[in-house]
Nucleic acid binder design. Structure first.
Lengths: 160, 160
DNA sequence: TGCTGATCATCAGTATACTGATTAACTACC
DNA sequence: GGTAGTTAATCAGTATACTGATGATCAGCA
């Protein structure tokens, strides 16, 4: 490993930065101001209405501390509501608003475009192989992260 | 694209987080406290003594603003020196100290281990293919980022 | 019931990353 | 030689991400 540019960690950082830049550009031209992380959180709350913050963090592999700020901004934008749970007063229950639902629908095409753009250097076969390897690598190293992916077993949306 | 977990942007973010976590763990057990970004900057200053901050940023695809803080911390740790250039008084010239050189040598094995660990889910052939695709994708989308990779043409270290 | 350990959310602190603006200094061109 | 455009660095502001700590609450168990 003679060079920084031959290190997977460095290349992954660069691709992630590219992904964020492309995402921002696409979403902005669709007339919205939403970050990739905020988008992921919104999508997950839609598929899991009433989810608490800790479970949400596990489902999209965030750090628990980070999620608080993300949710703050989504609530401030009027895309989410946050209320104290009726069954567990420690937990905050999250739900999408109609505004959030509408925004998500309008943003979806921009997000699709962004995913294609960030891999525009690869052909169709290469994209599929890249995705397979990405999934395999992240799955295997999941627990190395402080914010590992944690699926909810008692969750119908989780059934393959 | 039904799910967040099928989006390249999301998976790349996760792998990057894993990479950072593994890097920290390895470097820490080697007795140092250095981030991936700080490591990359150190390595580049070693191969390009007397480089200015803006050129350094281009060589490792950082944002120019970000580099200031990174260099600050490296100077504070005693790994780099920063001085006003003699030929261009706007520029700050960076050089490694002996302390920095020694640290880099001691850290190198930990960084190698971290690179292997983050891709421990892939076999040898898959790692090679993953690296090839990563390089191809980042090269093609380089200019989408605000902090694109900019190689220095008049640079002997750049000759292939 | 009361205790212990675990969990949810938050806070303080640090380190990337980015946008947009400003200041100082350099370069090119008239 | 002066001016316009460019460039290096920095600053203010915002948004991830992480570590480690704390307070409130819950669940299990003697």
């Amino acid at each position: 490993m003679k060079d920084i540019n031959d290190m997977p960690g460095h290349l992954v950082r660069r691709l992630q930065q590219i992904a964020v830049a492309v995402f921002h550009a696409q979403v902005e031209s669709a007339g919205f101001d939403l970050t990739p992380v905020q988008y992921a959180a919104l999508v997950r709350v839609r598929t899991h209405p009433g989810i608490d913050q800790a479970t949400l963090a596990g489902l999209i592999a965030y750090d628990r501390t980070t999620i608080a700020g993300v949710v703050d901004r989504l609530v401030q934008k009027g895309f989410l509501t946050r209320e104290v749970s009726g069954t567990d007063r420690r937990a905050r229950v999250l739900r999408m608003t109609e505004t959030g639902e509408a925004a998500l629908n309008r943003i979806a095409p921009a997000v699709e475009t962004a995913q294609k753009l960030m891999l525009s250097g690869l052909d169709e076969v290469e994209v599929a192989e890249f995705m397979r390897l990405l999934r395999k690598a992240t799955d295997a190293a999941n627990d190395f992260s402080r914010a590992p992916l944690r699926e909810v077993s008692s969750d119908p949306a989780n059934a393959k």
